[in-house]
Computed example of a mutant assay.
Amino acid sequence: MTLDDLRVFVAVCRAGSLSSVARELGCTQSAVSQHVKRLEGETGVVLLERQPRGVVPTQAGRVLETAAAEGISGLDLAVRQLRDLLDGESGYVRVATGATTVRHFMSEAVVAYRRRHPRVNLEFRTVSSGRGSLDALADGTLDLAWITLGPPVRGIEQRPVVELPWVLAVRADDPLAERPCIDAADLAGVRLIRLPPNSASAAHLDAACAESGVRFAQDTSVADWDTALLLAELGVGRAVVPALPGLAVPGSGDLRLLPVPALRPLPVGWAVRRWDALSPPARAFADLVESCRRG
């Protein structure tokens, strides 16, 4: 049983596919399978169950995956910390985020950080979901994740940075555009452009509306807030979105952003595996983003 065996096994459990891990590692599917077979031979149990579309860990496989992921994460963290102690200001910071987050929450901090820490590599990685970000933090693939904050997650620490009020985005010629603000009741029955229902921000919005006794219909679904704003500006529909930094309220030009003060604001911020174990470069970046947002 080697560290490589365990790394490959964890990757297969996360991906649910031998072939996708093989492509990622640049090797054959047979080579990936050999890592798993070696672990099964040494443990004496079946670790993966083959299904028509990929593989899933067995009960024994889930036990090994959890232990291996925690162990690998701890080793990777120790190696990074040793490198930081040796190199001082060099190293890298791996952040789960997307273009919308960088544009609205981090642009100022990224410029300032690059000026202050020119030898540190910043790596921004797009992760398809908040759950994916938390998994990547747990297994040590990422250092920081900018997320919509939610319920406590075992093994993950969350730090709130800012609360975003909700606004209704409409085109300037929309009948609602001249209102100074929107009451939550005005959203009842309105067909809205919205984020995918399984996203954390969409779940928060649903809960906030439910608190006000409001339900609205779905229309076009988009992957990010900027796309929702663009479609609203084009007159494709209306969108309830957070008041992102850098956007004027109530809005100008072809787009109007009307406050919806009755809805509970959206909390966003950092998620990490352990704050006290962050590398100095990662902690400096997180603190700088937080300082820029609160300043």
Rank of each mutant, 00 (worst) to 15 (best):
G237H: 06
R80D: 13
A69P: 08
T2P: 09
A109G: 04
A207T: 06
A185W: 03
L82E: 15
A96S: 08
V63E: 15
A277P: 01
G155L: 02
R23C: 14
G150R: 04
S291V: 12
A138E: 08
A15T: 05
L134M: 12
L82Q: 14
L247T: 14
Y113G: 00
D186L: 10
L134Q: 11
T141M: 09
E70W: 13
A138K: 09
R179E: 10
E233M: 08
Q81E: 13
T148Q: 06
M106A: 10
H35D: 05
R191G: 03
L47F: 08
G269S: 06
L266M: 09
Q218D: 15
R274S: 15
P265L: 02
V32F: 07
D84M: 14
I156N: 02
G150A: 04
A223H: 12
L230V: 12
F285W: 02
G213Q: 01
V93A: 07
L255E: 05
G251F: 03
L18Q: 04
V289S: 07
D84N: 15
A208T: 05
G61E: 05
L6M: 12
D139A: 11
I72H: 05
R159Q: 11
I156D: 03
Q51N: 13
F285L: 06
Q51A: 13
N121H: 15
P197A: 12
G269K: 04
L64D: 01
R62E: 14
R264K: 15
S107H: 10
D276W: 02
F216A: 12
G269R: 00
T58Q: 01
C209S: 11
P165H: 00
W225V: 13
L263H: 00
A67V: 13
R238A: 08
L258E: 05
W275H: 13
C13V: 01
R53E: 09
G246S: 02
L247P: 11
L122F: 07
A207M: 07
D76R: 10
A177S: 05
V110G: 10
V249N: 08
L39P: 00
I147P: 07
P280V: 07
P165S: 07
S90Q: 14
A284F: 03
G26E: 03
R273H: 12
G26A: 09
L137Q: 00
V95K: 07
E233F: 03
A96N: 02
R114E: 15
L205G: 08
L168V: 04
L244R: 09
A96C: 11
L255K: 00
S133G: 14
S90H: 15
T141Y: 11
A284I: 01
L244P: 01
I147G: 09
S30D: 14
S291E: 14
V110N: 06
R194H: 12
V289Y: 04
P180A: 07
L6N: 05
V32M: 02
S199I: 05
S212F: 06
W166D: 00
L75P: 01
R7M: 15
A277T: 11
A202L: 08
G61Q: 06
V161E: 02
E123W: 14
D87V: 13
D87L: 15
V161Q: 01
D173I: 04
V249E: 11
P267L: 08
R23E: 13
G44E: 01
H35F: 08
Q218R: 15
G253L: 03
V260T: 08
G71F: 11
A145N: 04
R159E: 11
G98M: 12
R80E: 11
W275M: 13
L168I: 05
P165V: 01
